[in-house]
Design a protein around this nucleic acid. Structure first.
Lengths: 204, 204
DNA sequence: GTCTATACGGCGATAGAC
DNA sequence: GTCTATCGCCGTATAGAC
């Protein structure tokens, strides 16, 4: 592999990202990361003391990439339906092109829950305000009073699960890559419509 | 641990189930399974030749437990809304009490896709007929014509993802076990209502 | 900073006594 | 069938030359 990056540290980090995303923590090998980076195994330990530390760096990057978007969108100034439309569209695009990311995050949380705890402590991430925002808009725009956490879960589920299940769709239903792309592309319209229809259903 | 089971093979299988579900394939240790079973490591190899074979046995059990229910319900004789209500209620109960199962299955599919392939080949599992059934009922009962795979994914997503995300809910929102139980219990009503509302929304 | 060589431990698997 | 002891490999981490 050609070393395009300016410095070695970044080369290692990018290689580690690829390998951890493919294999998870236990499955990844320092040797494989070294090969991917076109460097020597000893260098990984020179820059990041241990496999653990290297993993932590990769995890935090992936986690904030996914979760910062939610905060941004929900604290903007649009209707709930618009916010959901933007969020769903963004997620389905981003995640279906990086389909290892949601698996990676979920996998981390089961394999190494300390990673998430560490992330939560260092970045002071405040997801509760998102819930308050949802509750407020549900009440004002639809006159619905249900646990905003439930709605939050509906939205995340409909975006994230189908991406996690990608390999299952391939193997169980034999979908090829063109069918997959169509499927995710259609979902960008279908999911916001589905949610909006559901909200309107409560009104009557 | 007390050996309650009749035969050793079953003792090992149950221990293996617990450990694989906790740690995944790479994370699990044959020693840990032996300890969990209250038996010796060598015995695992006596009954199941290798770690691989033992894993395969555990995987197939978990996978068929989850997927056979879908087939049963969708080939029954009720309205689509009723089917979904039954399925959602069953899944949320079963999965929230066995929250490692969905993670385990997803994890397997990323870590060892051959496992799924092997399962599909030995049990001739036909999920396409479920899709045809959904399409038929959507048309007849709601006059909706959308890709049934999309609807199928909506249902699975809303059931399975919140269970996969359980550890995230605990760590990010600090929910305790009582709050979690309430949350999943409420979902049994909220999700079928949500879906039914959405379907009715297409009518107008 | 980057490399080669190697120490050290852990884990899957097997041999062999009972 | 069940156990103890041990082999042999592989993977993380480090020592040390350049």
């Amino acid at each position: 592999m050609v070393n395009i990056e300016k410095n070695t540290e970044l080369t290692i980090l990018n290689a580690a990202k690829k390998v951890f995303h493919r294999k998870g923590f236990d499955g990844a090998r320092m040797q494989e990361i070294a090969d991917e980076a076109g460097l020597n195994k000893a260098l990984l330990h020179y820059y990041f003391r241990s496999k653990e530390k290297l993993f932590q760096a990769v995890f935090e990057h992936a986690f904030s990439e996914v979760f910062s978007k939610i905060n941004d969108v929900f604290h903007s100034d649009f209707t709930l339906a618009s916010k959901i439309e933007v969020l769903v569209s963004y997620y389905i695009s981003f995640l279906s092109e990086n389909s290892y990311v949601p698996w990676f995050i979920v996998n981390c949380i089961y394999e190494k829950p300390e990673s998430l705890k560490h992330f939560m402590e260092t970045n002071n991430f405040a997801p509760v305000s998102v819930l308050q925002m949802i509750a407020k808009q549900l009440k004002e725009e639809y006159n619905i009073e249900i646990d905003p956490m439930q709605v939050y879960m509906h939205v995340l589920s409909l975006c994230i699960f189908p991406v996690i299940a990608k390999p299952m769709l391939q193997h169980v239903f034999g979908m090829d890559s063109i069918q997959m792309n169509n499927f995710y592309d259609q979902r960008k319209k279908i999911v916001p419509t589905f949610i909006a229809n559901a909200f309107n259903g409560y009104k009557k």
